[in-house]
Design a protein around this nucleic acid. Structure first.
Length: 528
DNA sequence: ACATCCCAAAAGAGTCCTGA
DNA sequence: TCAGGACTCTTTTGGGATGT
């Protein structure tokens, strides 16, 4: 038997596993879903019809259009366009019906000093602030167009254009979602969507539409996405940052696991066509750098020479100066620390040492891309001789195969196409790495090496393909730790030997390199 | 075919618990 | 008390199932 649409039964999953999370989500006092959208679907009339009704608005009293501004001034609003206690009109238990104009646009006299603008005024003001919004003077019949306090904040704050575009996309998506939910009978999926516009200021939507859906046999994905969009909207408006972890803890019961939030953030970045930076979502720093490199960031000058420095998000915008000849990227922090302990910089004074601690985060990759492009430093990777080592090296070089957009310019924008993998090489398994302890392949190693082989073929990297195929034939791996276990100075000796064999670029005179901005700054100083 | 979701797995560091 | 294992946290990846 099909579920009745637009009743609280509709939101009750066959499998109740998501119900608790959803109920929790909807009962949150500031929930965009709970207060406004889905709570409005679970109207008092429908609650009375459904004995299993669990989804209730925090304020169960039916509200009138006269108290909308009183409530919005007393409580923080949530979504732009979906302020608390808005009269949600036009819903019936089975089918949404357009409401009367007087209800729709709230023309009754407000009890608040706030003057209710006309629809035309709102649209005009919103179009000025949101060039991509463009409902073309025709709002969906169920949508209350009156601006919330947050919207007014947008209008008053002069947010950067990019932030305004993202905000308008979020609002557009939520508006479309509400229309979808009310107009589609028995949908199996609901979509958050917005139109991509061909030109700025154009009211004519391009054919392309950006959409992100959620199946209705489980409500958590939809509730999570809307809640995350709400959090992002608030972060943009208040210009405050949060990590993925912070977002996870905001609604732990709804999101379930950290991994789930990570996926959601990736999906939302793709959906909004925005970078994590633009959504004010930070990553905890993961990479470290040490060596002859000076960074001039917005918070001050950082000298990476004396101690390891965590790679922060703002490093990719920093002006840089270095005397290094190349950058050596090591896979693990333990090897990074061990090299420092073994006086790596006595042997390699003009090398910048970097680690991304396993798979590198985007901040590290962005930083390396800046060093590579602006300082013109060659880059070399030094990884385990195992499928994961090759995979990580390829991630630095070619980016992720999935090409998910979480950073400006997409994944391609941080690839290091000229990067070279110098070790540990599977082709040295029988000579240089011969005396080292080897480990047999496990099941995941077999799967991973075939993936590396496929990727090497895809990108046309013959040297990586050769190494991967050699490793696949050996069916044994050597970890970097094995070098140290063999002899305390084996890593330094190995690198020195590789430097003699490999065409690493070493300048015998110290040549200082700077990013163009910093070079200009020093030039000005000299002239003064 | 494509989008979405869930699962499994890797890397690392750090913390906490347990048994010798 | 200390070493080792289990677990948590944070980042990344790909594969397979499911639905449009």
């Amino acid at each position: 038997m099909s579920k009745p649409f637009l009743t609280t039964d509709f939101f009750k999953d066959e499998d109740d596993s998501d119900d608790d999370a959803l109920t929790n989500a909807l009962s949150q006092p500031q929930s965009a879903l709970g207060d406004d959208f889905f709570a409005s679907l679970a109207s008092p009339a429908r609650q009375s019809r459904s004995p299993t009704a669990e989804i209730a608005s925090p304020d169960p009293q039916p509200c009138s259009s006269t108290d909308r501004f009183v409530s919005s001034s007393q409580q923080p609003s949530t979504f732009a366009g979906f302020g608390n206690n808005r009269p949600q009109v036009g819903f019936s238990s089975q089918r949404a019906v357009p409401s009367q104009p007087s209800q729709r646009f709230g023309t009754q006299k407000s009890t608040n000093a706030f003057t209710q603008p006309t629809v035309e005024e709102i649209l005009e003001r919103f179009d000025d602030a949101h060039p991509c919004f463009g409902f073309d003077n025709e709002l969906p019949p169920y949508i209350d167009p009156a601006p919330t306090q947050l919207e007014n904040l947008v209008l008053q704050q002069h947010l950067p254009e990019r932030s305004q575009i993202i905000l308008s996309r979020i609002r557009d998506a939520i508006l479309n979602l509400s229309v979808e939910a009310t107009e589609t009978r028995n949908p199996k999926m609901l979509y958050l969507k917005y139109n991509l516009y061909s030109k700025k200021k154009s009211r004519i939507p391009a054919k392309k539409e950006q959409r992100m859906g959620s199946r209705l046999n489980a409500m958590r994905p939809l509730a999570s996405k809307v809640r995350l969009l709400e959090l992002i909207q608030k972060m943009i408006l208040t210009r405050s940052h949060a990590t993925k972890r912070d977002l996870f803890y905001k609604h732990k019961s709804l999101f379930g696991t950290q991994n789930y939030v990570d996926r959601l953030v990736t999906d939302i970045c793709n959906f909004l066509d925005a970078t994590r930076d633009e959504l004010f979502i930070l990553s905890c720093s993961r990479g470290s750098v040490m060596g002859p490199l000076t960074l001039c960031t917005s918070t001050g000058i950082i000298n990476c020479e004396p101690t390891p420095t965590s790679i922060a998000n703002n490093f990719s915008y920093a002006a840089m100066r270095t005397t290094a000849d190349y950058v050596l990227i090591v896979e693990k922090d333990t090897i990074f620390q061990r090299l420092i302990d073994e006086n790596f910089f006595d042997h390699f004074p003009r090398v910048v040492l970097v680690t991304g601690r396993g798979f590198p985060d985007f901040a590290t990759r962005q930083f390396l891309k800046r060093v590579h492009d602006d300082l013109r430093l060659p880059m070399y990777t030094f990884m385990d001789c195992d499928p994961h080592g090759l995979h990580i090296a390829m991630t630095y070089k070619y980016g992720s195969a999935s090409k998910k957009v979480q950073i400006e310019g997409g994944d391609d924008a941080v690839t290091l196409k000229n990067l070279q993998h110098i070790g540990l090489l599977p082709s040295q398994m029988n000579d240089l790495l011969g005396p080292l302890q080897r480990l047999p392949f496990n099941r995941t190693d077999f799967n991973k090496i075939h993936m590396v082989i496929d990727r090497s073929k895809e990108v046309g990297d013959t040297s990586m393909l050769y190494e991967a195929e050699t490793l696949a034939q050996c069916r044994e791996k050597v970890e970097l730790e094995a070098l140290h276990a063999h002899s305390p100075h084996f890593i330094i000796d190995y690198l020195l030997q590789r430097q003699n064999e490999f065409p690493m670029i070493l300048n015998f005179d110290v040549i200082e390199k700077s990013t163009p901005a910093l070079a200009k700054m020093y030039e000005v100083e000299v002239n003064l």
